[in-house]
Design a protein around this nucleic acid. Structure first.
Lengths: 113, 113
DNA sequence: CCTTTGCAATACCTTTTGGTATCATAATAA
DNA sequence: TTATTATGATACCAAAAGGTATTGCAAAGG
């Protein structure tokens, strides 16, 4: 149950979301990633581990380096979970549009569902 | 900066995501929401507060009741943030498809970016 | 060889999170 | 008025999160 949990957990932190944006432009070693932040490598390593657990990135070894790569498919579970709600804000936009067109007084009754 | 932070924070907890699913079917009082969970009302109230801070729900008073309503537009910021990455997994799928069509031996060279 | 570099792992600390239990309050019902 | 009901607020607790500093190790380079 809840394959999206790891992804949502990983996405909750702003530093981790920024890491994902960086990795969307290029694969990076841990050192390169931590150079982008005012934070110790240790902290960045922890973030990368959580991103890996959430399957949002993958890591491969090359000599003594560890290269982090974005795994965009990992974001699909979260994206799809959210997309379920698109129908509701689509409907709400339509309802709002109708409310404006039909005047606010009528809109209240329609809104009562 | 980062209007999506509140939303992502709120979405990180599985209980809160379930609450959103419940509210997508009907507006509910706090009591009704907490009846859906094996948890005290106090805990549910905290979750609802975090959902409200993330603008994923809104609350209106009706007598002594407080009715929680899904605010689907609030999920748009998170949804759009994620959609930025669609281009990458789209590309990856295309690359995979091409690799299969063009045979694996050629695919290795194409894969090298 | 020895030194440097890139990283993993761990101990440690502080703050946040997720939960409970309890008490206070406002609205409803009898 | 007196209960009862629905909720808000708070104190409290254990665990998780986010960070640092330190140690150790393997790979690269002199």
């Amino acid at each position: 149950m809840a394959a999206e949990q790891g992804a949502f957990r990983a996405l909750a932190d702003p530093t981790r979301r920024q890491i994902l944006l960086h990795l969307s432009r290029a694969d990076m070693t841990i050192g390169e990633v931590s150079d982008c932040f005012d934070m110790t490598r240790g902290a960045i390593k922890k973030h990368l581990t959580i991103l890996e657990e959430g399957r949002l990135i993958s890591v491969r070894s090359s000599g003594r380096e560890r290269i982090n790569r974005l795994e965009p498919l990992g974001m699909k579970s979260a994206s799809e979970w959210l997309n379920y709600f698109n129908q509701f804000w689509d409907n709400k936009l339509v309802a709002l549009k109708n409310a404006i067109e039909n005047d606010d007084i009528n809109a209240k009754e329609n809104n009562n569902d």
